[in-house]
Design a protein around this nucleic acid. Structure first.
Length: 478
RNA sequence: CGGGGCGUGGCUCAGCUUGGUAGAGCACCUGGCUUGGGACCAGGGGGUCGCAGGUUCAAAUCCUGCCGCUCCGACCA
């Protein structure tokens, strides 16, 4: 370890500079690269493969729950965007505009979609007639543009990849059930696939989506104690339906407005993945979503039989895992570091000594634990160990979250806690926007959510001292 | 959008103060040798010095503007 001096393009240690560490990891693990336009990143093959695995998992669940994929236009006429005033007010500051087509100025500006609510609304108004047409359960995989001032790879880009689900329902109850159902799909994606424990809750009025009646969120905690919103699901009521006149005839033939939802999860989750599981050697990927789960490193490739044996192992393992064999003439130590940087969950070393003893060496990425097993038990042990890593990563993240979750009785206490150690802080809140603003001002913390699992950590609002029953999770967020 | 730092082969940087033939290490290519935590030897290729103007006989170096990255604040997925 110590001789990784100047020869090695080292990653900045987390404790030294977390932000630098993050940037080093995403670049050196080859997840992305900067383009020559601020805020627009290049998703490199490895980074995109991660996104594809997340897509695959979620898309299957969207289909299982009855959703259909569609594709809406990239550009939105200004007049259309401006129909819903809360919505446009929320997005206006970060919209990119197209003002010219070819060499001719346009008569109306076109907005590059920051999200597609209005496009869906306009379309639905045309096609919905009867209660028999409902519900419509749509999703689209695309990218959106929001002209952000401060950008960071994955965490905040001017353009980012995501999915946006949009649905309309006959009743309020159906729409609300959909909102929660899709939030649960996000929970499953984070916890089952990505091994990221999350807290489910509702956003305060201040934090909710522009134009929504209610926004639900899942929040996770990064290694530096900052919170990150992993996905949101919105209930719109019939607000947009009234503006866009989306009506259907019910069984009695009476016209009714539809009830609407939307929900999104973006490539920002890749940032979460990096910051939840990564360490000073680089990325650490949960096996279930890792593009490559096992890398085989042959030792002394020039010796007879080594490459052949390694290839044989790869062919056998192909049936139970996603495997890569590296026969390049790089030094073994170089390969170890390289694949650790890329977070590949399990490494297999196979050299002349192992072949002699009919064994292989397995090394876990998450804890570097070495295990020597007989070659005969390869197909049995490898998937077992991958699942163990998956579980351990989740448990470790859960432990960190628990350790960094505290509670406060006052704004001052909240501030002192966060100044000392960032994390989730539970604190009671009266429900008043003014108090939320004050907390932001005094403690530099935002309300992450009103968790579904409510509890009483105090009797009174941490700001104004009024008696209250409502618990908020506070934190400093990305 | 305000404040700081930075921009020179693919990467990390030196050179800039005091203008005068573009450098090093790593990476890359060829050959040899080596392989259980980022080897070694020999030979080789590669740079409009972020972009655009200006000053000058002469600009990586001085001046102006712009672009980008990054960190810290305000705004947001």
């Amino acid at each position: 370890m110590e001789k990784e001096k100047k020869l090695v393009e080292a990653i900045t240690p987390m404790d030294e500079d977390f932000a630098k560490w993050y940037t080093d990891v995403v670049l050196k693990a080859e997840l992305c690269d900067y383009s020559n336009l601020k805020g627009f990143i290049i998703y490199r093959p490895y980074g995109y493969a991660i996104w594809e695995n997340i897509q695959k998992f979620m898309d299957a669940r969207f289909k299982e729950t009855g959703h259909e994929n569609v594709c809406m236009p990239l550009l939105i006429p200004e007049s259309l965007l401006q129909k819903e005033k809360d919505h446009v007010a929320g997005f206006a500051p970060e919209v990119a505009w197209v003002t010219q087509g070819g060499s001719e100025p346009l008569t109306e500006r076109l907005c590059v979609r920051p999200t597609s609510e209005v496009l869906f609304c306009e379309h639905w108004a045309k096609i919905v007639q009867s209660y028999k047409d409902l519900p419509l359960l749509y999703n689209q995989w695309n990218s959106v543009v929001r002209w952000e001032k401060t950008t960071r790879p994955f965490l905040r880009g001017a353009e980012f990849l995501w999915q946006e689900g949009h649905t309309i329902h006959a009743t309020k109850e159906d729409a609300m059930a959909e909102t929660i159902q899709m939030l649960e799909v996000y929970v499953e994606t984070c916890e089952e696939l990505l091994a990221i424990p999350v807290i489910k809750g509702r956003k305060t009025e201040k934090e909710r989506f522009a134009g929504a009646e209610a926004t639900y969120t899942i929040e996770s905690l990064m290694h530096d104690g900052k919170a990150l919103q992993c996905g949101t699901s919105h209930y719109f009521g019939d607000g947009f339906a009234r503006v866009f006149d989306i009506q259907y005839a019910d069984k009695e033939g009476k016209l009714q407005y539809v009830h609407q939802t939307s929900w999104g999860l973006s490539t920002r989750i890749i940032g979460a993945l990096v910051m939840v599981h990564g360490d000073d050697s680089g990325l650490v990927l949960p096996p279930r979503m890792a593009p490559t789960q096992v890398v085989i490193i042959p030792i002394a490739t020039h010796k007879e039989g080594v490459v052949e044996k390694a290839t044989e192992l790869k062919n056998r393992l192909n049936k139970v895992a996603r495997v890569k064999l590296d026969v390049s003439d790089k030094m073994p130590g170089w390969k170890f570091s390289e694949y650790e940087m890329k977070g590949i969950p399990l490494r297999i070393e196979i050299g002349p000594k192992d072949i002699e003893k009919n064994q292989v060496v397995l090394v876990r990425r998450d804890n570097r634990e070495k295990t020597v097993i007989s070659m005969d038990e390869l197909e049995a042990k490898v998937p077992e160990m991958l699942e163990a890593i998956q579980k351990d990563l989740y448990d470790k993240a859960q432990k960190l979250q628990t350790a960094k979750t505290t509670s406060a009785q006052s704004m001052e206490e909240l501030r002192d806690i966060l100044d000392k150690q960032a994390g989730f802080v539970k604190g009671m809140w009266c429900g008043d926007r003014a108090c939320e603003d004050k907390v932001k001002e005094v403690a530099a913390a935002s309300s992450r959510c009103l968790p579904f699992d409510q509890e009483k950590v105090g009797e009174t609002c941490i700001c104004c001292g009024k008696p209250t029953e409502t618990l908020v999770i506070w934190g400093r967020a990305y």
